[in-house]
Design a protein around this nucleic acid. Structure first.
Length: 389
DNA sequence: GGGATTTGACCACT
DNA sequence: AGTGGTCAAATCCC
């Protein structure tokens, strides 16, 4: 649905318009909204950054659309039905008696083949979540409803990796999956690798909800309610600390992984929003990915409560690890996935704000459910080198 | 009872 | 052959 993308784009542009309008408002009014108060200049700076980020997002989407158009919008990676139709031939696990087992194996193989094929084309990105209390069994929740379908011990990792797929995979054919792995080094950190974007209704609900009424999203924005809890606990995002610490606010870095095709020259959403200005040349189009980030930190701003912070790290990278931001240019369906993925990621944030745990006035309402990539609370840093295990 | 999770097995990829 | 990703029966939980 190209119309949908255009819509998205328009929506983001509308946000930009609103932000631009805010720039014209008296500082006083703004200060109320802006935390400390009395910092008109800061307020303007913040809004300007928002605007910058919004425009960057819009550009990103526009480019993606353009790229998709160039690609001819060809074969929307077919193999549908792989998720939906499952003639579950029961396979007895233990009774390894030939026939049923073999039939099942064949069936599974066919399904598997399809899914793997398709999976390869799906956009993939990683986020790091930090939870304040590593002792808790808490796992990062992005607000979506996931169903665990597997767990596996990974070589070299202390903790098993959990495999999740969208709860609505069968019902709505949603291809989104994620892998959650607790960091060896820091128990409070989780590496979450997402693959495929939500096409299910839950995403749209969130996006719609968040988009229409920004700051305190309606309950539906967080059906599980877990998000609230998590953010109250203080989901924190950490960066790899590769570069000099930009100013304090939480950082968001996303690494995307994708095997193909074109370089997405301007993917500033991550930094544009708030982060330090991207290294001019290297920045995306140029040579590679930005590689600046801030060290882990606990958002000061955040918290009135003092504990509500979170940090996330996002990454998106070509499989070769070139460090470029890339998106598949193969077909528009992939574009959609990327866009949707972005929207879904952003959903991570929105409910958070709703949780009230966040006190980032600057970004209240700024969390844009439509953005192609996760919105930033504060500094966005990104790297191109984040790789999944 | 229905949905979610656990867990061992299977399969593809490298 | 080793490893990662997925499946699906068994089990758990509400």
């Amino acid at each position: 649905m190209d119309g949908g993308d255009i819509h998205l784009l328009l929506s983001i542009l509308a946000d930009g318009e609103e932000q631009a309008r805010q720039l014209g408002e008296p500082a006083a009014a703004a200060d109320d909204e802006y935390h400390g108060g009395g910092r008109g200049e800061e307020y303007y700076r913040g809004v300007a950054r928002q605007l910058q980020g919004t425009l960057a997002r819009a550009m990103g989407i526009a480019r993606a659309i353009e790229a998709a158009a160039f690609a001819g919008g060809g074969g929307a990676s077919g193999s549908r039905g792989t998720t939906g139709d499952r003639s579950d031939s029961p396979r007895s696990a233990d009774e390894s008696s030939g026939r049923t087992a073999r039939d099942a194996a064949v069936a599974q193989q066919e399904r598997h083949h399809d899914t793997i094929k398709r999976r390869k084309g799906l956009p993939r990105w990683t986020e790091k979540f930090r939870v304040p209390d590593a002792s808790l069994e808490a796992t990062p929740d992005d607000g979506f409803s996931w169903r665990k379908y597997g767990q596996k011990d990974i070589l070299g990792a202390k903790f098993p990796r959990g495999y999740y797929r969208c709860t609505y995979r069968n019902a709505q054919g949603c291809p989104a999956t994620k892998q959650v792995q607790r960091s060896d080094a820091d128990l409070a950190v989780f590496d979450v690798t997402y693959q495929g974007a939500h096409t299910c209704h839950q995403k749209q609900r969130r996006a719609a909800a968040a988009g229409d009424q920004p700051p305190p999203p309606p309950p539906q924005a967080d059906p599980s309610g877990e998000l609230l809890v998590n953010f109250r606990h203080g989901l924190k995002v950490e960066t790899n600390g590769l570069a000099p610490p930009p100013p304090p606010p939480p950082t968001t870095t996303t690494n995307f992984h994708d095997d193909q095709h074109f370089c997405f020259p301007s993917m500033p959403p991550f930094h544009a929003g708030v982060g330090p200005p991207p290294p001019p040349d290297d920045a995306l189009g140029g040579g590679g990915c930005n590689n600046f980030s801030s060290p882990p930190f606990v958002s000061p701003a955040g918290s009135a409560a003092g504990e509500s912070y979170f940090s996330m790290e996002h990454s998106y990278e070509p499989r070769g690890g070139g460090g470029h931001f890339v998106m598949s240019r193969g077909d528009s369906s992939e574009l959609h996935e990327v866009l949707a993925a972005a929207a879904s990621s952003s959903a991570v944030v929105d409910p958070a704000a709703a949780a009230g745990g966040f006190d980032y006035p600057l970004y209240h309402g700024e969390v844009d459910p439509h953005l192609p990539f996760p919105p930033l609370f504060g500094h966005a840093s990104m790297y191109g080198q984040y790789r999944d295990a």
